[in-house]
């Protein structure tokens, strides 16, 4: 009830008087993008040993800064917990929320925010030790399953087993560190969370990563992506196309190292993209070289994935380009 009240109040504020000035102008005049990120999620957003933010979600923020200012470093990061994230966006404390947030209809409509694009397609999966010789989640009847409480993960798990008329014994442990230890200590047969989490845990914590398999069944859809406030379409466009540009660049074969050589390309799509012809940037209210700046300074989507997620053992999988059998499909930049 309390949460709903807060949300209602927030939605009222967000849709009402809050946004007299456009976010794009405000961002331009203050000289940086204020970006809400996760306080720490390997591969998506986390500070390294030198305190520099790294990750796929962080690259989304940097892409927006590159598009607006031609300088990917003009970002200020606000680390946010799960409870704070929507308020921070609604109240105008941040300009973009790039915090591995699942795009759902209730969030899109009820919270006064708009999701711009999906930069990672995730979903809940199962990991089991290889020696159990399980090939499919359908064989998990009666299994002991390690899961963290209070998340949609727990609900999805129960739904899936009920739908398949199977039973399971949950081992519910609050802290990530401990639930992972419980799984590797053999207290449960199965560990379930988002596939991205399974991959990261397997890569970093298993004695021998090859001893654990992630089952092919993915039992939920978790499209993760940045969001902006509802009701400011110009800013929505800027953030949306900054992300799309990264995917489009990969499709066009433009990377941070090669784009300078491609500036002279005669391919009309490339010419439009780098701003040699047309006025796409101007229509967005940006410099015409906005997309060039993104690719030059942040890289294309594939490069960002390679740099941040590949070292953790992530496969491109469904996050590959549509031409390679994945879901990453950029609307045409023209």
């Amino acid at each position: 009830m309390k949460a709903r009240l807060a949300v209602a109040a927030a939605a009222l504020l967000a849709s009402g008087a809050l946004h007299a000035q456009s976010t794009l102008d405000a961002v331009k005049s203050k000289g940086y993008v204020q970006c809400g990120v996760n306080t720490g999620l390997a591969g998506f957003s986390q500070p390294d040993s030198r305190g520099v933010w790294k990750g796929l979600d962080v690259d989304a923020c940097r892409a927006v800064a590159a598009a607006v200012f031609g300088d990917a470093s003009k970002v200020r990061y606000t680390p946010l917990t799960a409870q704070q994230r929507f308020t921070a966006l609604q109240s105008g404390e941040i300009d973009v929320l790039s915090r591995n947030t699942t795009w759902t209809i209730t969030r899109d409509t009820g919270l006064g925010l708009n999701f711009v694009f999906t930069n990672y397609y995730d979903g809940q999966g199962f990991m089991v030790p290889k020696k159990l010789n399980v090939k499919s989640a359908k064989q998990l009847n009666g299994a002991t399953i390690c899961v963290q409480p209070g998340t949609t993960t727990e609900l999805n798990l129960a739904d899936y087993f009920r739908a398949n008329k199977m039973s399971f014994k949950p081992v519910v442990i609050e802290k990530l560190e401990e639930v992972v230890n419980a799984y590797f200590a053999g207290r449960c047969d199965v560990y379930t969370t988002d596939v991205s989490g399974l991959v990261a845990v397997r890569a970093s914590r298993a004695q021998n990563p090859a001893d654990h398999v992630i089952l092919p069944e993915v039992i939920s859809k978790e499209p993760l992506g940045p969001a902006v406030r509802h009701g400011d379409d110009r800013w929505f466009d800027v953030v949306k196309w900054s992300l799309i540009a990264m995917v489009e660049a990969e499709e066009l074969g433009l990377g941070s190292k090669t784009i300078d050589q491609q500036l002279a390309s005669t391919n009309p799509s490339v010419q439009r993209f780098v701003g040699a012809t047309g006025d796409i940037g101007k229509q967005l209210g940006l410099d015409n070289r906005w997309a060039y700046n993104i690719v030059k300074q942040v890289g294309n989507y594939g490069e960002s994935f390679e740099a941040n997620l590949k070292p953790l053992g992530f496969d491109r999988g469904i996050n590959n380009l549509w031409t390679q059998g994945g879901l990453m499909y950029a609307p045409p930049v023209r």
């Binding site: 809050l18 007299a20 704070q84 921070a88 109240s91």
Partner: peptide
């Protein structure tokens, strides 16, 4: 302080 207060402040005042 961190979640409720910002909602009640007028725009621009953070």
């Amino acid at each position: 302080a961190s979640v409720m207060l910002p909602l009640f402040l007028p725009e621009g005042v953070s």
